[in-house]
Simulated assay, not measured.
Amino acid sequence: MYIYLNGQIVKQEEAVISPFDHGFMYGLGLFETFRIYDGHPFLLDDHITRLNEGLQLLNINRVFNRLEVVKLLNDLLKANGLTNAYIRFNVSAGSGAIGLQTAPYINPTVIVYIKSLEKRNSMFEKKGQIVTIPRNTPEGRERLKSHHYLNNVFAKREVGDKLDVEGIFLTKDNYVAEGITSNLFWVKDHTLYTPCLNTGILNGITRRFIISLARNKGLRVEENFYPVEHLIEAEEVFTTNSIQEIVALSHIETHYFKGEDGEITAMLHKAYQQFTSSLWAMKEIGGIDDE
Rank of each mutant, 00 (worst) to 15 (best):
Q12I: 13
V110T: 12
N241I: 10
K172M: 10
L150W: 07
G39Q: 03
P19C: 04
C196H: 11
L249G: 07
Q56P: 00
I168H: 03
V153F: 02
I205C: 09
E253L: 09
G218P: 13
K283Y: 09
F275E: 10
F34L: 13
L197E: 14
T33F: 07
L213T: 03
V91R: 02
I232D: 14
G27A: 01
K217H: 14
A79N: 07
N183A: 15
L55M: 01
T171D: 15
A248I: 06
R35K: 14
N84A: 01
A271L: 05
G262L: 05
K119P: 02
K126Y: 15
I211A: 08
H22R: 00
I106D: 11
E13K: 06
A266Q: 05
I111F: 02
I205Y: 08
Y193S: 07
V10A: 12
R88A: 12
I106L: 09
N59S: 12
A177V: 10
L43H: 06
Q274T: 15
L77M: 02
E166R: 11
N6P: 09
V63G: 08
K283C: 06
V112R: 09
H190N: 15
E68V: 08
H255W: 06
E260M: 12
T132K: 10
I201C: 13
M25C: 13
K270R: 14
K258H: 10
D46H: 06
L57A: 07
G218Q: 11
S18A: 06
V63Y: 15
N65I: 05
L28D: 07
L67M: 14
L30H: 03
I210T: 07
G54L: 02
E245G: 05
G96E: 12
S122N: 15
G27E: 00
E158A: 00
A97N: 15
F124W: 07
I210K: 04
I60W: 02
R88G: 09
S92Y: 03
E284W: 05
V10M: 13
V165T: 08
N121E: 15
T181C: 13
T83M: 02
P227A: 11
L202W: 13
L76Q: 00
L279V: 07
L30D: 07
T132C: 02
I264S: 11
F257S: 09
V187I: 15
L249F: 08
G128E: 06
N74A: 01
Y226E: 14
T254K: 09
V69D: 07
L192S: 14
M25W: 02
I17L: 06
A93M: 01
V187R: 00
G29M: 08
I9W: 01
N136K: 06
G7Q: 04
E13C: 01
V187M: 06
E235F: 00
I243C: 08
I106N: 12
Q101I: 08
G23S: 10
P195R: 01
V159M: 00
E13W: 01
G167D: 03
R143D: 10
E236I: 04
Q56F: 00
H269N: 15
L77F: 02
S92L: 03
Y37P: 04
A93Y: 01
P41K: 04
G7N: 04
N203H: 13
Q244H: 06
G23L: 06
A15V: 11
G140F: 04
E142T: 10
I3G: 00
L72P: 03
N216C: 12
D45H: 04
